[in-house]
Design a protein around this nucleic acid. Sequence first.
DNA 1: AGTGTTCACGCCCTCTGCTGGCATGTA
DNA 2: ATACATGCCAGCAGAGGGCGTGAACACT
Length: 639
Amino acid sequence: MAGTEISVPPEQFTKIKEGVLITEKALEEGEDGVCRVREHPSSEELEAESTHGALQAKIPGGKLELVLAIPEEGEKHILTLQTAHLTSEDAELQDLAPQHQGEVPVVVQQAGSGVQSLVRLGEGSQQSLHQCVTISIQEEMYPLQEVEVMQFHVLEENVTGASEDSKCAVSLAESSGSIKEEEQLLVEGGFSEETEGQFFLVEARPGDEIVLTISTLNTEKPALGQAHVEKANATKSRKKTKEVKRTFHCDICMFTSSRISSLTRHMKTHTNEKPHMCHLCLKAFRTVTLLRNHINTHTGTRPYKCGDCDMAFVTSGELARHRRYKHTHEKPFKCSMCKYASVEASKLKRHIRSHTGERPFQCCLCSYAGKDPYKLKRHMRTHSGERPYECHICRVRFTQRGTMKIHILQKHTENVPKYQCPHCATVIARKSDLRVHLRNLHTYRAAEMKCHYCPAVFHVRHALLQHHKTHKNEKRFKCEHCSYACKQERHMTVHIRTHTGEKPFACPSCDRCFRQQQLLNVHFKKYHDTTFVPTVYKCPRCGKGFSRLNNMQRHLKTCGSGQEKPTTSEKGRRTKKRKPTIPKETAKEAEAAAEEASLVSGEQYPGGLVPIDFGEATAGGEDLDEDMTCEMILAMMEK
DNA sequence: AGTGTTCACGCCCTCTGCTGGCATGTA
DNA sequence: ATACATGCCAGCAGAGGGCGTGAACACT
């Protein structure tokens, strides 16, 4: 690594402390329009206020790599640490053995295990901490019992320059908080010549998560350079440590390799040199292997055939993966926080984002951020309006294929299975809607729901609604002044006016008042609306006009036989049949009958009929019947 | 250097579930 | 006529499966 600024693809790492890394993060927009975390200000937990650092970690195959970006005066430096799991036996050896310079072994005790914790960072270090970066490792994500022994290797040496007498203090505490923070293990530490004076404070804090605070001293800007070779920090007497060897660094990216041939090959990835061209499509490739695989896609050559199904693949790796997915179901990548396991490491990494909440793929048009590139891409359709999926039957387009499939199923498919509510007779087309139904109607609610009509109370809405039906068709509104009863409260409101004498609907053109709006409307049309043309029913025999159909029909019985027809002025008129007039013995009963017809007269006319006086306006010169029903009034008003 | 294997990334898919607008029935 | 309740429906996002591909790695 040869730059002062390293662009670390966030997807390669797992966020380990959201509060520090994300909430104060600064976003950098990448080439793909995706904003990524580059750095963040120091948190209050940092012992040196001037220290900033983007810190990310990844867990490749059981190792935990921590990448610290420690900006100083506008610069950023990268320190890569790598942990290595050790056995307890290793740890015992480790406890007494002097550490090689450059090593930062950390022995972490499992909470309650009784084994003394130890973190060893090197020799000759002191507690002199000028800069630090806090690393928070959620215990669930990386359980202590799985990191009984950790070793930090300095993989990138871009942080240098502390004084020799600087020391590093390490304190450990159980995540449960049972260990006092004062119980610190002071461990001396140091590094190789190149990293002399670089020290770390690793400390675990009690709480829900283990917090490792790594502090460094006096970071310096690394030297810029081309692809360079430097001696790696060698470790000794350790398992899983790298031998002393030369490391070849790419000056363009973070790539390092122990072989110059690998670096040479790698450097071709930074060029567009692709000497191997496909003779079928002229597509070029860097290596002959890639070209051969590509040609196989043309020819359909898939030499690696699955023995358990008809699938075949270009490479053996694809076949092996396929077999794990489809046949062996081997899932070596297990989540430490839940039971999830996956065939591929990338899937576990993606899954862990559902625990950490990390959303590296930021929409540049809104606040949405996705956990993987596809979700961001799918989300972008909401901005572009793109609807790639079309129903082949009705041509309606959709943003997602799943939505279209549901559409086709529900709209264009017969015998679609439906979901029966287990608590009532409701059948719902979609399971998700059934869930809503259950939530709204069949979920117990602590708050009592009272019946509008009786003292009964319920805690399940469906039970209340069922109970309401028991009140149906019952004239539950009873007048306290007389024997009148009705089904609807609004009718009772009107009826009460017959006792109070209230007539709230006043004609704006004269001094008349009415108890109902409908009566006022009819009055206004008759006396004050010059454009109003009343309906006239003419006798087909004698031509006599009637304002109401039933009067004309009654007339016909004496005048002759035959069906009448309304005049042209009645065209389009509603022709509801009049309810049969039921003789009532009392005015109250008449009111009740009128109430049944959704109209209660303020006047006391028997039979529930409303007297309407059309005067001389009728064509036939006949006064309107006084026993006109509400339907007729409504029909007239409609006209 | 050649070649096979492993790893990582990316793409696309399906399934699932929540949300809110709309249509419709009911009071 | 109106308000309200509720199922229907499309939109949208979360989560995970499966596979194609290229680069790095490891072996010969």
